[in-house]
Each structure stands twice: as structure tokens, then as C-alpha cells.
């Protein structure tokens, strides 16, 4: 595996750090060496929040993202600070409703109604997991089974079924999408 850099960006409280924790654990289950970093603003909710996962086969000299291969943009506030880090041809999944101006240009952009899909599943809070599933499905970052196992380890038991349903919905959406 080439060094792969993934960012989950948006507004504090959207479950971006949780998403990255799940991916970190899933990649580790697949035998990868991973590092996860995070940043947020000093507000209890809202403000720019991100969590990055960098993974490869070897020891990671530098654990932070320098050239993103993947970006899940859950809110407009996550776009500006991430734009300059995007690698040419990076895969970007952006929530249609909350990210009206996603990064464009040299990226493979997928605009998708993650929030609406989550509401349809019964809880807006799983929009992040749908996005995680969709991005991993589109980009082949890691397998669905590893992600499901990681979700079991990282999320509360009461929400396990809903989260797994959201992951399925994310992977299922892959075929339905067309590049914007």
C-alpha cells in the first residue's frame, strides 16, 4: 500500500473524529501502519474540525497529512483549510446540503446527500458513517468487513445496528453515483 492520506473535515460535532478512529482501527486490522491526528476549535460545538488518517506498510516517519488522497467534506467550514492539502486527482466526497461550495478543479468530486440519507435512515447523526462507507467504497481505502469490525469496537452498542446499516448504505450508494 502506497502511503495513503485521508481527511474527514467539517464542523465540530459531526462525528469526524469518530469516523477517523473507525478507519484507523479498520486499517490496523488489515495490517497497515496508521497514524491519526485531529484538530478542532475551542468551541463545544461547531467550528472547523478535522481528523486525518495516514497509513502505509512501513513505519511512519511523519504522521500528519501533507498530500490528501481522500477528503470527506461534511460541512463548508471544512473545505477552505483542506483545499491546499489536496493531491492532484484526489477523491472528494462532499455532503450536498452542508457543503454548497466543495473543492473543484483537479479533484474527482462526488456530491451526495449524506445528511438526507441519514435522516431517511432515522438519525441525522449517521451521515458521517454513510460518508465513510461511500468514500471507502469509491476509493478502495479498506474493506467493508474491517470497517464493520472497527465500528463494533468504536461505537456504543445501542447504536451498533444503525451504524452498520449506515455503513451498508454508504457502500450501496457507490454504484448509484456519478462524478459531479
Amino acid at each position: 500500500m502506497e502511503l495513503t492520506e485521508v481527511r474527514f473535515a467539517g464542523s465540530g460535532g459531526q462525528g469526524l473524529i469518530l469516523c477517523a478512529r473507525i478507519l484507523f482501527r479498520a486499517l490496523s486490522l488489515e495490517g497497515k501502519t496508521a497514524a491519526r491526528s485531529q484538530g478542532y476549535e475551542p468551541t463545544s460545538r461547531g467550528g472547523f474540525c478535522f481528523s486525518d488518517v495516514v497509513a502505509g506498510d512501513d513505519e511512519l516517519d511523519y504522521p500528519l497529512a501533507t498530500a490528501l488522497d481522500f477528503l470527506l467534506a461534511m460541512d463548508q467550514v471544512g473545505v477552505a483549510p483542506s483545499r491546499s492539502l489536496l493531491k492532484k486527482g484526489a477523491l472528494v466526497v462532499a455532503d450536498q446540503r452542508l457543503t454548497p461550495q466543495p473543492p473543484t478543479g483537479n479533484v474527482e468530486l462526488y456530491r451526495t446527500p449524506l445528511t438526507d440519507q441519514a435522516i431517511a435512515l432515522g438519525n441525522i447523526r449517521v451521515a458521517n458513517i454513510i460518508g465513510l462507507g461511500l468514500m471507502c467504497g469509491l476509493g478502495g481505502i479498506c474493506g467493508k468487513e474491517s470497517l464493520a469490525k472497527a465500528i463494533e469496537g468504536e461505537t456504543p452498542r445501542n447504536f451498533l445496528d444503525l451504524n452498520l446499516e449506515a455503513l451498508e448504505a454508504g457502500f450501496a450508494a457507490v454504484g448509484e453515483l456519478e462524478a459531479a
Binding site: 484507523f24 497514524a35 491519526r36 491526528s37 484538530g39 511512519l60 500528519l64
Partner: peptide, 9 residues
């Protein structure tokens, strides 16, 4: 803060 909030194995 970066190292304090970093996750590694």
C-alpha cells in the same frame, strides 16, 4: 498538542 492528540499503535 499534535503528539498529545495523535493516535498510533
Amino acid at each position: 498538542q499534535v503528539i498529545g492528540h495523535l493516535q498510533e499503535t
